[in-house]
Amino acid sequence: MRGPALSGVFLLLAGLAAAQEIPFPERRSGRDQMAPETRAMQADDEANPGMLWVLDGADLFARAPTPGAPACAACHEAGALRGVAARYPAWDEAEARPVDLEGRINLCRTRHQGAAPLPREGRDLLALTAYIANQSRGLPIAPPADSRLDPARATGRALFERPLGQLRFSCAGCHDAHWGRHLGAAPIPQGHPNGYPLYRLEWQGLGSLQRRLRNCLAGMRAEPFAPDSPEATALALYLMQRAAPLPVETPAVRP
């Protein structure tokens, strides 16, 4: 009797240990697990295909969204947005909820530019987000110490650790407990959001963090979270806290 009971306790503890967060000094960017050629492509602005979106974003930033409406640059000096991507998602007073960087851009469009929100995953919103996030390149992720964000962060952490989908995998089961191992041919990264939006060779294009999460959820055979939903923003908030103080790398490159 004693043997099985003891090993039962042991296995339960092993299961709990699997949900441990990665300690500060062990946090690694997904970049570190990539092949040298992919890393070189990310490091060289001439070779990094994501830079095309950054350049497009700079154009959009300077241009009036509709004739007569102010451009983003009318309110924000070029270069003045350094640091912003390192601290988003952030609390929005008027909405009384956390919003991610894409959500912030769309709030500026509707509130200050009299323009319609840009569709998520559309080229323009990806380009503007990449342009703004690129200005934070090299800065450590620094989530704001804003207690209004705490409930959403806690929700995000709970989602990260909860088994979901037909396979009943949790994000933590792969990214906390088994990073560095392989799922088929794919090395499992720690799952940090510091390079997004990023260029993925498999996508042949730039994609947002929410697109990446949809891919992982589809792998779990789980229903994805709609971008800008409370769950999606909560997960993004927790991912940013879990990644600090890794540097922003937008636009990163992935295979």
């Binding site: 909860r162 037909q166 009943r168 229903e223």
Partner: peptide, 23 residues
């Protein structure tokens, strides 16, 4: 092993937020 990563291949209940194609 309640903590195992290996999926339970012959169980339909107890799963949350299952994608429509797999429900």
């Amino acid at each position: 092993n309640p903590g195992t990563l290996m999926p339970s291949y012959y169980r339909a209940e107890g799963a949350e937020r299952v994608g429509a194609a797999w429900a």
